[in-house]
Amino acid sequence: MVTQYAFFFNAAACSGCKACQMACKDRNNLEPGLLWRRVYEVAGGGWEKKGEVWVPSVVAYNISMACNHCEKPVCGLSCPVKAIWKREDGIVFVDTDRCIGCRYCEWACPYTALRFNATTNTVSKCDFCFEAVDAGGPPACVAACPQRALDFGDLAELRKKYGETRQIFPLPDPSLTDPALVIKPHRDAARAAERAAEVANWEEV
């Protein structure tokens, strides 16, 4: 029995193609502006003069991120009406019939997973494609990835398979929420902080 569903994300393999994001939008009919899964482009570094020419010291990689269905879901802990709840298998849901639309949880979630949905006038977010998962299939984003950079499963098993890493630059301190997330870092992640990397595509995420 799954006690905590989780995502695996291979940052070393992710091309930033956004097929995952689009699969999510199509499944959930998300209007433009509403992203449950989105792809951050992290970039930093610069150029150095070497003799007569310039050489790059650029770092760059992509992070595809949805909701991490955290074990300590601060979103729900801070919701005044308990509209966010966690299922037996760890999936975190927003109850759109109860949500008052105060948008407080949006501030609380360090992964910016919660997004206001102007159609329902409530917040909304990734529901782990629970219908598909309940039927034994993969979430739409996982099934979409042309680079096979996404996987899902029980957190404990994913950790066994892919290791314990759950944070790369510039993701927040994982102890804040205990995200159900396993990451394989891109080679540049280790140098990102020192090269003053930042998310480079704000208007897209």
């Binding site: 074990e71 300590k72 879901p73 729900g76 802990l77 308990k82 509209a83 709840w85 966690k86 299922r87 037996e88 849901f93 927003v94 109850d95 759109t96 019939d97 109860r98 529901d127």
Partner: peptide, 20 residues
Amino acid sequence: SALVGSTAAASKGLAAGFRR
């Protein structure tokens, strides 16, 4: 799916204020 959310069922202790 919202209806699903509001059907209260058995709860199991988790972080304060939270039920599965």
